[in-house]
């Protein structure tokens, strides 16, 4: 049974339990560290306002190991990457527990497709032999006959993960997926202690739609593998989902802000805090691309000149 949690409240202030200083909790965050005594606090809001995550995937990589993964990632960026990346300065690093939804459902799909079944046949053709005579020969050719197939396919959709944070898009989250959900933990405030933990900032219904759409896409891929025959074409399907579940899960993400050019805004690189997988958009070097295009054109021109010269 899927129920929508209520909207997220505004930012709050509270007193540090250790030194009494007044702290402001930023919107969509549930943890804070006192700047005066460094005590880590976890703020638990009323369940009616914002439910706790059901599960948490704990951080496995600490900051130095995550930085190392980013450095390795920069080294592998290839020739067209912006030259400034090699000496990029890390402007900010944050280890964040990102809110996401873990979606599951049973998907029933009615599908139809044209299935290609190959067969061989012998055909006669006319050709010219080495002496210039016209001759009739036979050859074996493979042909395909198309048969219509319709049916119903049912499957579980399990472990579809979608972001619930406006701070990190679903595409950015997908770039560092998958997470090892075998190491999932039941939510405990102690897992957030000393770390930034975000509250969901995307409305529940939108997350559900996103998860549903991702789930349906995965059904399409499953159906493509499910088809018999030597090939298939025109696969169409209509999917209905039921027995949906959505569990709020907090995922460990390292976020790095890298400045590779003093005149450009820093780029954001994300690292899966559990597996170390790195994701981010690579800035390309316009100069290198231009040089490559000019070299390519010169090569084509040289070939044309050689061919025309009759060499």
């Amino acid at each position: 049974m899927v129920t929508a949690p209520p909207p997220v409240p505004e930012s709050t202030t509270f007193d540090c339990q250790s030194c009494g200083a007044t702290l402001t909790l930023r919107e969509h965050e549930r943890t804070a560290v006192c700047p005066f005594c460094a005590s880590p606090a976890v703020v638990e809001k009323p369940s009616s306002e914002n439910p706790d995550p059901t599960f948490v995937v704990g951080f496995v990589l600490d900051q130095p190991r995550a930085s190392q993964r980013v450095r390795q990632w920069i080294k592998r960026r290839g020739w067209f990457a912006h030259g400034g990346l090699a000496s990029a300065v890390v402007q900010e690093t944050r280890g964040v527990y990102l809110p996401a939804y873990l979606y599951g459902a049973v998907a029933d799909s009615d599908y139809e497709a044209e299935i290609g079944e190959n067969y061989t046949t012998t055909e006669t053709y006319t050709t010219t032999d080495s002496k210039g005579n016209t001759v009739v020969r036979t050859r074996v050719v493979v042909k395909t006959e198309w048969r219509h197939l319709a049916g119903r396919h049912s499957c579980y959709l399990v472990d579809v993960v979608v972001t619930a944070s406006r701070g990190l898009s679903n595409a950015e989250l997908e770039a560092v997926e998958p997470f090892d959900l075998g190491a999932i933990r039941r939510y405990d405030p102690a897992l957030f202690s000393g770390w930034i933990a975000e509250e969901p900032s995307i409305v529940f219904e939108k997350c559900r739609e996103l998860a549903h759409s991702e789930g349906t896409e995965s059904v399409g891929r499953k159906l493509a593998r499910f088809m018999p025959g030597d090939s298939h074409r025109g696969l169409r399907f209509e999917t209905r989902v039921h027995d949906e579940i959505l569990h709020l899960v907090s995922l460990p993400i390292w976020i790095f802000a890298l400045r590779y050019d003093p005149n450009k805004p820093p780029i954001r690189v994300t690292v899966n805090g559990q597996t170390g997988k790195v994701g981010g958009a690579i800035p390309l070097s316009p100069i290198k691309i231009t040089i490559a295009v000019i070299l390519g054109l010169l090569l084509v021109l040289a070939i044309v000149l050689i061919v025309r010269g009759g060499i």
């Binding site: 709050t12 509270f14 007193d15 540090c16 339990q17 250790s18 005590s39 880590p40 606090a41 976890v42 703020v43 638990e44 809001k45 009323p46 369940s47 009616s48 405030p189 102690a190 202690s193």
Partner: peptide, 10 residues
């Protein structure tokens, strides 16, 4: 089930 905001230093 919580009914009020609680701040916890573990």
């Amino acid at each position: 089930r919580r009914t009020a905001t609680e701040v916890e230093v573990l």
